[in-house]
């Protein structure tokens, strides 16, 4: 199946997840629930770039990682979120998040074709850091379920967006463009990391 069809296939069932969230809300509304959760990965450039990079790198690596990475990431994100929800302090997760942007961007820029287990491991470690950040906020959301649906869905859709961008590889000049984008992401990640370390 082509990547474009994969994107369409992933989006169609995902639409079932958001069929009627507005109609489903009662009481005080979705603020603090689905909308907050959905906005969380989108509102932080570090989260956003890292998620897109997971999809983009997966698309670049091809089968099976184009499908495996968007599955590994949410699973390990849950592990990190559970640690965050339990209030267990993990130092330097913020640095881990910034590092993820730099490393994933660098992998794309360098066209790094890692073995499946290495690519999955890299993504898994970073997913724990990202999940931890979400998990710290989850229990206090007015609607934790809506919040979790929101940020998992937003994360998944960002992966799909990255895969869709990765489909540009097949076009003329696509690979250099993707590698350039990866380089830009890595550079931005470096700036983030420097800021986090200097703080």
């Amino acid at each position: 199946m082509t990547r474009a069809r994969f994107v369409a296939r992933a989006l169609a069932p995902a639409m079932g997840l958001v069929a009627v969230p507005a109609a489903a809300h009662t009481g005080t509304g979705l603020a603090g629930g689905f909308v907050s959760g959905f906005a969380h990965p989108l509102s932080g450039p570090d989260h956003l770039l890292a998620m897109v990079s997971v999809g983009l790198w997966g698309a670049f690596l091809g089968r099976p990682l184009v499908y495996a990475l968007p599955v590994v990431f949410p699973m390990m994100m849950v592990a990190g979120a559970v640690v965050g929800m339990a209030g267990i302090a993990i130092p330097s997760t913020e640095i881990g998040i910034k590092l993820s942007v730099m490393v994933l961007g660098g992998c794309i820029a360098l066209a790094l074709r890692a073995p499946v287990w290495i690519a999955a491991s890299i993504v898994a470690v970073f997913a724990i850091c990202h999940g931890y950040a979400h998990g710290r906020e989850l229990p206090s959301a007015a609607d934790p379920m809506g919040y979790s649906v929101g940020f998992v869905l937003a994360t998944g859709l960002l992966h799909v967006a990255g895969i869709a961008l990765g489909s540009l590889e097949a076009r003329r000049g696509g690979t250099p463009a993707i590698r350039l984008a990866g380089g830009a992401i890595a550079a931005i990640g470096g700036v983030f990391l420097l800021g986090a370390v200097m703080r």
Partner: peptide, 15 residues
């Protein structure tokens, strides 16, 4: 693609 979406569902249920 449904397996990817199933991964999201499992993540939400686990959380």
């Amino acid at each position: 693609a449904p397996k990817v979406v199933a991964g999201w569902l499992l993540a939400i249920a686990a959380l």
